[in-house]
């Protein structure tokens, strides 16, 4: 499965890439903010997007709204340091059903990606 990684932190992007190495998930693109995420999604049409929330230029939820307007079947895994009920409810309203709070282990990330890919 082809994955687009979206996070303003290069460390987090590297963590996701490393976790996916040797797995069924291949990182095919990286975006540093929501604006790049939307552009790359249209270009790459990935199977899954891992999406940070707090980013400069455009935040994750705004980007998700645009991605889902373009592709209502987009599979998005929210990866954020934030995990409060109101944020998750807002994400669900947009159509994001999967989330994983940072910091995460490689195993937890792969498990979340696997659950999302089956959904």
């Amino acid at each position: 499965m082809r994955v687009l990684v979206v996070d303003d932190s290069p460390l987090v992007r590297n963590m996701v890439k490393k976790a996916c190495l040797g797995s069924a998930f291949e990182v095919v693109g990286e975006a540093r903010n929501g604006e790049e995420a939307v552009a790359l999604y249209r270009e790459l049409l990935p199977d899954i997007v891992t999406l940070d929330v707090t980013m400069p230029v455009k935040d994750g939820l705004s980007a998700a709204k645009e991605i889902l307007a373009f592709d209502p079947h987009a599979r998005i895994l929210l990866l954020s340091a934030m995990g409060d009920e109101e944020l998750l409810a807002e994400a669900r309203t947009l159509g994001i059903m999967s989330s994983l709070q940072k910091p995460f282990t490689p195993q937890a990330l792969l498990s979340a990606l696997q659950d999302l890919s089956r959904g």
Partner: peptide
Amino acid sequence: NLVTGHALTSINN
């Protein structure tokens, strides 16, 4: 970012 995110999560909840 992680510390602030976890703190605000706790406060928001």
